[in-house]
Design a protein around this nucleic acid. Structure first.
Length: 581
RNA sequence: GCCUCUUUAGCUUAGUGGUAAAGCAGCGGUUUCGUAAACCGCAGACGCCAGUUCGAUUCUGGCAAGAGGCUCCA
């Protein structure tokens, strides 16, 4: 049995059920997708989630009638007549006719649809419990926001009832790990109505993790010879006009008004244009290159309200951004160095990934800056670099930045979901637009090449990804609190504070240790520690006082025995320093 | 921005055309405790603005925020 065919067939069954219940609904399109299928309709009155049960029941009722799909090639006239009340089908037929393809109609049960085929042979034999309608949403006709919004009904469908159940369980698991929920539960960040949507407020714990992410990126940048700079949050429109961002992204930038001048200012949505001005601040010799600049500044983008979501899509965020200005003969080495750092980072974070080579869409050249020859050169260069390094990649047309091709790293989290994180981008365009120069061996003025890069991408978004990846249980080096010290009763509170001091003094690394000296039973304090996902709990009482030890509890492992304070300090230091996962 | 839906205390939830119940968290007290929830008490909420109504947390409309999608993502 071909699952994709079954899913496609089920979308026909969905349409049949909908038409049975809502005779005025106009069916449009309904393909199979990764986890099931959907079908888009124009309804004359609103349909909501609560109607899904009825539609699903009708699907099961009609299922036995879907014994076979009978296909028939018909004339354009016949098809036009059949769908005379459905402008969507008419529009689809325009496309089919234009391509010179035959028009085929498929019938199953009493439902006939315009379709090119690819169905299950006999749908009536599938388990009626192996599919379900999952949710409803709006979707623009043909994916264009200028078009009418249709109602999309999504269904899940798998080979068996068990596989469907497994998928539903996975969704439940993902919900438990949702960074928006855990972020609040663990006291990492909140949103405030007074502050605004897409503008998270990081509590001390969230800020600690954010700084740990940025600190690691900084360390990797330092090792590559990048130097950190600091540039203004707002800049004249002229800067973005020169870079090309103004023309392309003006509507997505926050405008700032001065009370005294008419000049247009914008909050910066990215760092690259400012970095060109760091480069341009001096005359550069070929010997000075590469000039490597890093920046962790806050960025602002005026995202549409409906696009904002948790930490994954924000209006204020930062990037671990780097710009390398170099000669053409230095590209390969710089690129390789960046790729190494990025791969090292992903290994440290324990994330699997694949590489996407994001190229220009040759049919929409007007959406990109720069000459054809430049694009051909830079795209070929990138391909060669990946090939020489023996790194497998997938090409993606139309995913390039407007100024050049990108190599994007797509990471997979522990639930198999994909996130675009790191990126390396070759840019021959922006240095030209800003008239950047260096003097070569012969005293001639030449234009440097700019390599844009990000390691974790946005630290804030990466925080969200990490929360979900680890289900909130961060590795020690990222944990907002490394350990709690738990006195067995109030009598040992002073001992606990002294032990904390001793632990801090014995450790070569600054430890984030909290003494839990509130009046609760030990059992309760342990429970609180487990729920807060604290990596280590150190218990002290009479016995430990005599021996200068901690009774150690490790997250996920429970009681792992008694250890000297000095030994604990040593292994904490080692585990943090090595960024063990 | 668009479509559908949601909004009761810090969190999770109950409930009603006559202003609301609980658990956890918080605060006060008692207990001084050895590996995932001691006991008693106190305080705390109907997102905002209009409309309908004798009366609205409940019905209607608008706004805001959120969710699932669509579109977009330098």
């Amino acid at each position: 049995m071909n699952l994709e065919h079954t899913r496609h067939s089920l979308s026909h069954l969905l349409a049949a059920a909908v038409l049975d219940l809502y005779p005025n609904a106009k069916p449009t399109l309904g393909p199979a997708i990764e986890t099931g299928f959907y079908y888009d309709f124009e309804f004359s009155s609103p349909v909501g989630e609560e109607d899904l049960k009825t539609i699903e029941a009708k699907m099961r009722e009609l299922l036995p009638t879907f014994k076979e799909f009978v296909g028939k090639e018909v004339s354009e006239q016949e098809a036009r007549e059949y769908f005379k009340d459905n402008p969507y089908k008419q529009e689809l037929m325009d496309g089919i006719v234009q391509d010179g393809s035959p028009i085929t109609l498929y019938t199953a049960g009493s439902f006939t649809d315009l379709c090119r085929g690819g169905h299950a042979e006999n749908l009536s034999t599938i388990d009626p419990e192996s599919f379900t309608l999952s949710h409803i949403s709006g979707a623009y006709w043909r994916g264009d926001e200028k078009n009418i919004m249709l109602t999309r009904i999504y269904g899940l469908a798998f080979e068996t009832k068990e596989n469907l159940q497994a998928h539903l369980t996975m969704i439940e698991e993902a919900k438990k790990r949702d960074h928006r929920k855990l972020g609040k539960d663990l006291g990492l960040f909140v949103f405030s109505d007074l502050i605004g949507p897409g503008l998270p407020v990081y509590a001390p714990k969230g800020t600690t993790v954010l700084r740990a992410i940025q600190g690691y990126s900084k360390e990797l940048r330092d090792a590559m010879g990048y130097q950190e700079v600091h540039t203004p949050q707002m800049n004249k429109a002229d800067l973005f006009k020169t870079s090309g961002h103004y023309e392309k992204y003006r509507e997505d930038m926050f405008r700032v008004h001065s009370n005294y001048t008419e000049e247009e200012y914008y909050l910066k949505p990215m760092n690259c244009p400012q970095h060109t001005q760091v480069y341009a601040s001096q005359t550069r010799s070929y010997r000075d290159l590469p000039v490597r600049i890093a920046d962790f500044a806050n960025l602002y983008r005026d995202e549409k309200p409906g696009e904002l979501s948790g930490l994954t899509r924000l209006r204020a965020f930062s990037q671990d951004d780097g710009h390398c200005f170099c000669r053409e003969d230095q590209i390969q080495e710089e690129f390789a160095k960046l790729l190494d750092s990025i791969r090292k980072a992903m290994e440290t974070y324990g994330m699997n990934y694949w590489i996407r080579l994001s190229l220009r869409d040759e049919e929409k050249k007007d959406q990109y800056l720069g000459e054809d020859a430049t694009w051909e050169k830079s795209q070929a260069l990138m391909k060669n670099l990946l090939k020489e390094q023996g790194i497998p990649y997938k090409e993606a047309l139309g995913e390039a930045a407007f100024y050049g091709p990108k190599m994007d790293l797509i990471a997979k989290d522990s639930l198999g979901r994909e996130w675009q994180l790191s990126t390396i981008q070759l840019d021959f365009t922006m240095p030209e637009r800003f008239n950047l120069e260096y003097v070569d061996e012969e005293g001639k003025r030449r234009t440097p090449i700019m390599i844009h890069s990000a390691i974790a991408g946005s630290a804030e978004r990466f925080l969200g990804v990490l929360i979900e990846h680890h289900a909130g249980a961060f590795p020690l080096w990222l944990s907002p609190e490394h350990a709690w010290i738990l006195p067995v009763s109030d009598k040992f509170n002073e001992l606990a504070h002294n032990a904390a001091k001793a632990l801090r003094e014995a450790s070569a690394t600054a430890l984030r240790v909290v003494v839990r000296d509130h009046s609760e039973t030990l059992g309760k304090k342990i429970r609180e520690g487990e729920q807060a996902k604290i990596p280590y709990l150190f218990i002290v009482g009479e016995k430990e006082e005599k021996e200068g030890t901690f009774a150690v509890r490790k997250r996920g492992k429970g009681d792992i025995g008694t250890m000297k304070i000095e030994a604990v300090a040593a292994f904490l230091h080692e585990e943090i320093k090595s960024r063990a996962s």
